[in-house]
């Protein structure tokens, strides 16, 4: 069958590329490998070590804190923008372009630009103080408790436009009849959006969530460019933990254990997501 045949190259590529690499990582995580791979079984030693490391706990927690906030804020902001643009606005094309362009920039550029802007000594805080507001403070970038939120700000800046674009197109595809019916019944517009239009667009929202969660995984570069994981290691992420241990700390075993845990968490989340979807459909 031709259709199956056509899939063979991709299946092979992914089986070897993704699953081969994954398998290798899992295998190495059970060995005592340090600077080069050594196939010497060490049981759970690397995992035990991982759990004693404060830095790993911080990184792992951050993945969820950053991920949840990034997805939620991008989604809310993007949807609000799309709805605002949907109100027969002047200059809509221009505004759309302004909202959308950051997505074309890499996370590295995004991180550098925002690091510059939010740096308390050279950026926004300094400028506002220079204007005469001496007590103005915005030093989240150098606060261990808040730096992770600056990553969210930069991330939302990067992605909200994409959500806006997708949602705007989604809003445009809603049948005019629905609006007319709503008007006849005298339902306020806000209620229409909340109760009827947005629930209708659930598939579109899911596409956004998928795209955004892929970004969370890739946010390594954002962290490196913007905070370098600091202050301290308060903005560390699992991906950065893995790369540091893999390449500079010459600790392949530990890095693999961390990568395996990260993968396992992601797979659990995906399964959960899929199961929730099914549950909803079943009902």
């Amino acid at each position: 069958m031709m259709a199956r045949f056509a899939l063979v190259p991709s299946i092979l590529l992914c089986a070897i590329g993704f699953y081969g690499a994954m398998l290798w990582t899992v295998v190495i995580s059970f060995t005592s490998s340090t600077i080069t791979p050594r196939y010497e079984f060490a049981g759970l030693a690397q995992y035990v070590r991982l759990f004693t490391m404060d830095r790993w706990h911080v990184a792992y927690t951050n993945m969820f804190v950053f991920g949840a906030l990034y997805i939620a804020c991008s989604l809310i902001f993007g949807v609000l923008l799309a709805i605002a643009l949907d109100q027969s606005i002047r200059g809509r094309n221009l505004l759309q372009t302004i909202f959308l362009y950051p997505i074309a920039l890499s996370f590295i550029v995004t991180g550098l630009a925002w690091q510059w802007l939010l740096n308390p000594t050279t950026g926004l805080q300094n400028y506002v103080r220079g204007l005469g507001f001496e007590s103005f403070a915005f030093d989240w970038l150098s606060s261990p408790d808040r730096a992770v939120y600056t990553l969210v700000i930069a991330g939302v800046w990067h992605a909200a436009g994409l959500v806006m674009a997708i949602m705007y197109a989604g809003l445009g595809s809603v049948d005019g009849e629905i609006w007319r019916a709503g008007r006849v019944d005298g339902i306020p517009r806000t209620t229409m959006y909340r109760r009827i239009i947005l629930p209708m667009l659930k598939p579109v929202i899911i596409v956004c969530v998928v795209l955004l969660s892929m970004d969370v995984i890739k946010s390594y570069e954002l962290v490196v460019a913007m905070t370098g994981g600091g202050p301290g290691y308060s903005t560390d992420l699992p991906a950065k933990f893995v790369v540091d241990n893999l390449f500079t700390r010459t600790n392949i075993g530990l890095a693999s254990a961390a990568a395996t845990l990260m993968l396992a968490s992601i797979i659990v989340l995906l399964l959960l997501f899929g199961w929730l979807q099914k549950e909803r459909v079943a009902r």
Binding site: P120, M226, T227
Partner: peptide, 13 residues
């Protein structure tokens, strides 16, 4: 620890 209070806010990274 004492020294850490004598740097500026932009020190991070």
């Amino acid at each position: 620890r004492a020294l850490s209070t004598y740097s500026d806010a932009g020190a991070s990274n």
